[in-house]
Amino acid sequence: IQLFSRPDFLGDHFSFEDDQAALPASFRPQSCRVHGGSWILFDETNFEGDQHILSEGEFPTLTAMGCLASTVLGSLQK
Rank of each mutant, 00 (worst) to 15 (best):
I1R: 01
I1W: 03
Q2H: 14
Q2L: 05
Q2Y: 06
Q2T: 15
L3E: 08
L3R: 04
L3A: 04
F4E: 01
F4C: 04
F4M: 01
S5G: 09
S5K: 01
S5N: 11
S5D: 12
S5E: 11
S5Q: 07
R6H: 12
R6F: 08
R6A: 12
R6E: 15
R6V: 01
R6G: 12
R6M: 15
P7T: 09
P7C: 07
P7I: 05
D8G: 12
F9R: 05
F9I: 05
F9M: 02
F9V: 03
F9L: 04
F9H: 05
F9A: 01
L10S: 13
L10I: 10
L10P: 04
L10A: 13
L10Y: 10
L10M: 15
L10W: 05
G11L: 05
G11R: 02
G11T: 04
G11Y: 02
G11W: 03
G11A: 01
D12F: 08
D12H: 10
H13Y: 15
H13V: 15
H13K: 12
H13N: 12
H13M: 14
F14P: 02
F14W: 13
F14S: 06
F14K: 09
F14T: 07
F14R: 08
S15P: 04
S15C: 12
S15I: 15
S15W: 12
S15E: 15
F16T: 07
F16W: 05
F16S: 04
F16G: 05
E17P: 04
E17W: 12
D18W: 05
D18N: 13
D18L: 05
D18F: 07
D18S: 14
D18Q: 12
D18R: 09
D18I: 05
D19T: 08
D19F: 01
D19A: 07
Q20F: 05
Q20K: 07
Q20H: 05
A21V: 12
A21R: 13
A21Y: 07
A22T: 13
A22P: 01
A22C: 14
L23M: 10
L23E: 00
L23P: 01
P24G: 03
P24A: 04
P24C: 02
P24F: 02
P24K: 01
P24L: 01
P24R: 06
P24H: 00
A25D: 13
A25C: 10
A25T: 11
A25F: 10
A25Y: 10
A25I: 11
S26A: 14
S26M: 11
S26Q: 12
S26W: 13
F27E: 03
F27V: 01
F27W: 06
R28V: 15
R28L: 09
R28F: 11
R28M: 11
R28G: 02
P29D: 06
P29C: 11
P29K: 03
P29T: 11
P29F: 07
P29I: 13
P29W: 02
Q30S: 06
Q30M: 15
Q30C: 07
Q30P: 03
S31P: 07
S31T: 08
S31W: 09
C32S: 04
C32E: 03
C32Q: 00
C32N: 02
C32I: 10
C32R: 04
R33C: 07
R33A: 03
R33G: 03
R33V: 14
V34N: 00
V34E: 01
V34W: 05
V34A: 03
H35T: 13
H35W: 12
H35R: 13
G36C: 10
G36A: 11
G36R: 12
G36Y: 09
G36P: 06
G36W: 01
G37E: 06
G37M: 05
G37H: 05
G37I: 01
G37S: 09
G37Q: 01
G37P: 05
S38L: 10
S38M: 12
S38V: 13
S38H: 12
S38P: 10
W39F: 07
I40N: 03
I40S: 05
I40C: 08
I40W: 02
I40H: 02
I40D: 03
L41K: 00
L41A: 07
L41M: 08
L41Q: 00
L41N: 05
F42R: 01
F42W: 10
F42M: 04
F42H: 04
F42T: 01
F42S: 05
D43K: 08
D43W: 02
D43P: 08
D43I: 05
D43H: 12
E44T: 06
E44D: 14
E44S: 13
E44Q: 13
T45H: 13
T45V: 14
T45E: 15
T45A: 15
N46L: 05
N46A: 06
N46M: 07
N46H: 10
N46R: 05
F47Q: 00
F47M: 03
F47N: 00
F47R: 03
F47S: 03
F47C: 04
E48P: 01
E48S: 13
E48C: 13
E48M: 14
E48W: 04
G49N: 04
G49W: 04
G49P: 01
G49K: 02
G49L: 05
G49A: 03
G49C: 05
G49I: 01
G49E: 02
D50W: 06
D50V: 12
D50T: 14
Q51Y: 12
Q51E: 12
H52N: 06
H52V: 13
H52Y: 15
H52W: 15
H52Q: 00
H52R: 13
I53Q: 12
I53P: 12
I53D: 09
I53K: 08
L54G: 05
L54Y: 01
L54V: 15
S55C: 10
S55M: 12
S55K: 11
S55D: 15
E56G: 05
E56D: 09
E56W: 05
E56I: 10
G57C: 04
G57S: 04
G57M: 01
G57E: 01
G57K: 01
E58N: 12
E58D: 12
E58L: 02
E58V: 06
E58C: 08
E58M: 04
E58I: 05
F59N: 08
F59I: 02
P60H: 01
P60N: 03
P60Q: 02
P60E: 06
P60C: 02
T61Y: 04
T61F: 03
T61G: 05
L62M: 06
L62T: 06
L62G: 01
L62W: 03
L62K: 06
L62F: 06
L62D: 05
L62Y: 07
T63S: 14
T63L: 11
T63E: 15
T63A: 11
T63W: 07
T63M: 13
T63I: 11
A64T: 11
A64N: 07
A64H: 12
A64G: 07
M65V: 06
M65I: 09
G66D: 06
G66H: 04
G66V: 03
C67G: 05
C67F: 14
C67H: 02
C67D: 03
C67M: 11
C67N: 03
L68W: 09
L68S: 15
L68V: 14
L68I: 13
L68A: 14
A69F: 07
A69L: 08
A69C: 10
S70A: 08
S70P: 10
S70L: 03
S70W: 07
S70E: 13
S70T: 14
T71Q: 10
T71A: 09
T71H: 09
T71N: 08
T71F: 12
V72N: 15
V72I: 12
V72C: 14
V72W: 14
V72F: 10
L73E: 03
L73R: 07
L73Y: 06
L73V: 15
L73A: 09
L73Q: 07
L73N: 07
G74R: 15
G74P: 04
G74T: 07
G74A: 11
G74M: 14
S75R: 05
L76V: 14
L76G: 01
L76A: 08
L76F: 08
L76M: 08
L76I: 14
L76T: 08
L76D: 04
L76N: 00
Q77R: 14
Q77L: 06
Q77A: 13
Q77G: 07
Q77W: 04
K78D: 05
K78V: 11
K78E: 06
K78S: 06
